[in-house]
Design a protein around this nucleic acid. Structure first.
Lengths: 120, 120
DNA sequence: CTAAAGCTTGACGTTGACGTGAAGGTCAAG
DNA sequence: CTTGACCTTCACGTCAACGTCAAGCTTTAG
């Protein structure tokens, strides 16, 4: 399939797919006319990429991690156990970010509540 | 007080204070020599700014919100009740972001756990 | 007096994941 | 044939909150 179809199937833009390729996350073959050619697995691959990015992992680390992911990103293959520590550090960073946001949310709630109290 | 002292007191850089002024969040007076002159309330003002930014509010919105904050940012003065809706929307955005991160974190935990299981 | 410290404005650099044209080749439909 | 929908490769623009010089004042300390 060509880039446009993959984009529609995976829910991303063509530009995004070219960017992923530029970052070494996708390696489409080429048709004689120069068009990129993707296969069905690439749809899943794009979903794995989106998952990692959504998890706060950048493209550099995603490039290392992706070869170690199978089965829709739920498992790591044994050969890549050394990535576990990285994942744990990432989980800590996420937890910290969550704590910050929780704090901000609590503060906002306080302001809102105070505003209502003042009004009442 | 001059910019350096305010920076030390509030725990931010001089550049940051100039940036806040550029964004309309601070309005220091000027000494005859051109130096910026801040007063004691500005220390609290900077803290309020940091609080809002930490809550995910950008400088544009902070510029609207700041005139409505008193008492160390815990309350809104009545004249600015119309900002409550904005705060509530912001709280929702934060909650959504938290949910995304929780999801990512759960997924990461799953991967880590799976990796350990595979290893064991 | 002099050197260091602090202040001024101005302006470019940073970070990441793309958006958005520009200029042009390719291909199927009418 | 030609229109229009794709595709290609550059390559600059975006957003936010600053960091980081640069060049040149003023003030402070010794």
């Amino acid at each position: 399939m060509k880039i446009g179809e993959l984009g529609r199937r995976a829910g991303v833009s063509s530009r995004t797919l070219r960017y992923y390729e530029e970052q070494g996350l996708l390696e489409p073959t080429r048709q004689p006319n120069g068009y990129r050619s993707y296969n069905d697995q690439d749809v899943e691959q794009v979903r794995r990429i989106r998952f990692l990015l959504a998890a706060g992992i950048n493209t550099d680390m995603a490039r290392e991690v992706l070869p170690c992911m199978v089965d829709d990103g739920q498992f790591l293959i044994p050969a890549c156990e050394d990535l576990i520590a990285e994942f744990e550090r990432e989980e800590i960073r996420i937890a910290e970010r969550i704590a910050e946001l929780e704090s901000a949310r609590t503060a906002l709630s306080g302001i809102i509540a105070a505003a209502y109290t003042t009004t009442a």
